[in-house]
Structures are given as structure tokens and as C-alpha cells.
Amino acid sequence: DRHTIHIGDITIHLEGFSEEELKLAEELIKRGIHLEEVKRILEELYR
């Protein structure tokens, strides 16, 4: 499954994450956390 996060003019595609995980990812990215770090956090929390 493919999910999309929109932040301003930026569109990020993250596959294989639930709606809850994507909301967390979006919040972290909006707070300035680097995408690679966001992915690592999600994997630690949900895998």
C-alpha cells in the first residue's frame, strides 16, 4: 500500500505504514526531523 504525506509543496511517499504511523511521521517531519530519522523511529516503534 502507498501513502502520501503533503507538507507545503513537498510530497513524501511512504509505503507499508498504517494511518497512525503516517500521522506520527508527518508530525515529526513538520517538527524538522530528517526523513531518515523518521523512518528509523517508525521502524523501532512499530516493527
Rank of each mutant, 00 (worst) to 15 (best):
26 E>L: 11
27 E>F: 09
11 T>R: 05
15 E>C: 13
30 K>M: 13
23 K>V: 09
35 L>V: 08
25 A>S: 02
19 E>I: 12
39 K>A: 09
11 T>E: 12
37 E>F: 06
37 E>M: 08
26 E>G: 08
6 H>I: 09
46 Y>T: 02
27 E>N: 09
18 S>I: 05
22 L>N: 04
41 I>W: 14
1 D>A: 00
24 L>H: 14
22 L>C: 06
9 D>H: 14
5 I>D: 06
36 E>Y: 07
2 R>C: 11
8 G>D: 12
21 E>P: 09
22 L>E: 05
26 E>R: 11
21 E>R: 02
16 G>F: 13
29 I>E: 01
11 T>F: 13
18 S>W: 08
35 L>T: 05
15 E>V: 13
15 E>M: 12
7 I>K: 05
29 I>S: 02
13 H>R: 09
19 E>Y: 10
29 I>M: 04
30 K>F: 14
7 I>R: 03
43 E>S: 02
25 A>G: 05
1 D>P: 01
4 T>R: 00
27 E>S: 10
12 I>T: 04
4 T>G: 06
10 I>K: 08
23 K>C: 01
12 I>Y: 12
41 I>M: 11
2 R>F: 14
9 D>V: 12
6 H>K: 10
24 L>I: 12
3 H>W: 14
41 I>T: 02
10 I>V: 13
2 R>A: 14
39 K>I: 15
40 R>G: 03
41 I>F: 09
22 L>T: 05
30 K>W: 10
26 E>W: 14
40 R>W: 08
10 I>T: 13
22 L>D: 01
23 K>R: 14
35 L>Y: 08
28 L>W: 07
29 I>H: 02
41 I>R: 03
1 D>R: 01
44 E>M: 02
4 T>F: 07
30 K>S: 10
44 E>Q: 03
46 Y>N: 10
1 D>F: 01
13 H>P: 04
44 E>G: 01
20 E>M: 07
46 Y>S: 04
19 E>F: 13
15 E>T: 13
4 T>S: 09
32 G>C: 07
44 E>C: 04
7 I>V: 11
21 E>D: 06
4 T>K: 01
15 E>R: 03
38 V>E: 00
42 L>R: 00
19 E>T: 10
47 R>K: 15
39 K>M: 15
24 L>W: 09
33 I>K: 09
4 T>H: 08
27 E>L: 10
35 L>C: 03
46 Y>M: 10
22 L>V: 10
9 D>T: 06
39 K>R: 06
31 R>G: 09
11 T>Y: 10
37 E>V: 12
14 L>M: 10
45 L>Q: 02
26 E>P: 01
2 R>N: 15
29 I>V: 09
9 D>M: 11
25 A>D: 00
20 E>K: 08
21 E>A: 15
15 E>F: 15
2 R>H: 12
5 I>V: 04
13 H>A: 07
46 Y>G: 03
35 L>Q: 04
7 I>L: 10
16 G>M: 09
1 D>I: 04
29 I>L: 14
7 I>Q: 06
37 E>I: 08
45 L>E: 08
16 G>S: 06
35 L>I: 13
22 L>S: 05
45 L>K: 00
39 K>F: 14
24 L>C: 04
17 F>N: 03
42 L>M: 06
7 I>D: 08
32 G>F: 15
22 L>H: 09
33 I>A: 06
32 G>Y: 12
24 L>A: 05
34 H>N: 12
7 I>S: 11
47 R>C: 15
3 H>N: 13
42 L>K: 00
37 E>W: 11
44 E>H: 02
16 G>C: 04
8 G>W: 09
17 F>V: 04
8 G>L: 10
11 T>V: 07
35 L>W: 14
32 G>W: 14
13 H>N: 07
33 I>E: 05
4 T>N: 10
20 E>Y: 08
37 E>D: 14
10 I>N: 08
43 E>V: 04
23 K>E: 09
24 L>K: 04
18 S>H: 08
47 R>H: 15
43 E>Y: 14
30 K>A: 12
16 G>K: 05
9 D>F: 10
3 H>E: 12
9 D>G: 11
12 I>H: 04
13 H>G: 05
14 L>A: 04
3 H>F: 14
21 E>K: 01
14 L>S: 03
25 A>W: 10
25 A>N: 00
42 L>G: 00
23 K>I: 05
28 L>T: 01
18 S>Y: 05
37 E>Q: 05
28 L>P: 00
24 L>D: 02
14 L>E: 01
24 L>G: 01
31 R>Q: 14
7 I>E: 07
29 I>P: 00
4 T>P: 14
33 I>W: 10
42 L>A: 00
44 E>L: 05
14 L>Y: 04
12 I>P: 02
41 I>D: 01
40 R>V: 05
28 L>R: 00
43 E>G: 02
40 R>T: 03
29 I>K: 01
27 E>Y: 13
25 A>R: 01
15 E>Q: 10
5 I>C: 02
40 R>I: 06
34 H>T: 15
17 F>S: 04
39 K>T: 06
25 A>I: 15
17 F>M: 06
17 F>G: 08
16 G>R: 07
41 I>Q: 05
9 D>I: 10
17 F>R: 03
16 G>E: 07
10 I>W: 10
4 T>I: 07
40 R>L: 08
32 G>R: 00
1 D>C: 02
40 R>F: 02
5 I>P: 04
12 I>V: 11
38 V>W: 05
14 L>H: 03
29 I>Y: 04
31 R>Y: 13
35 L>F: 11
15 E>L: 11
23 K>W: 12
19 E>G: 07
32 G>N: 03
14 L>G: 03
47 R>V: 15
39 K>N: 05
11 T>W: 10
17 F>P: 03
37 E>T: 08
18 S>M: 06
12 I>M: 09
29 I>T: 04
27 E>G: 06
6 H>T: 14
12 I>G: 04
36 E>D: 10
22 L>R: 09
41 I>V: 09
17 F>I: 06
30 K>Q: 10
43 E>R: 01
19 E>D: 13
34 H>C: 04
8 G>H: 08
36 E>G: 06
42 L>I: 15
29 I>Q: 01
14 L>N: 01
25 A>Y: 04
13 H>T: 12
46 Y>I: 15
45 L>N: 02
15 E>K: 10
3 H>L: 14
4 T>Y: 05
3 H>P: 13
32 G>E: 03
41 I>S: 01
44 E>F: 08
19 E>W: 14
4 T>E: 14
45 L>H: 02
22 L>M: 10
6 H>W: 09
6 H>S: 08
31 R>H: 06
23 K>Q: 12
42 L>N: 00
6 H>V: 15
26 E>K: 10
44 E>P: 00
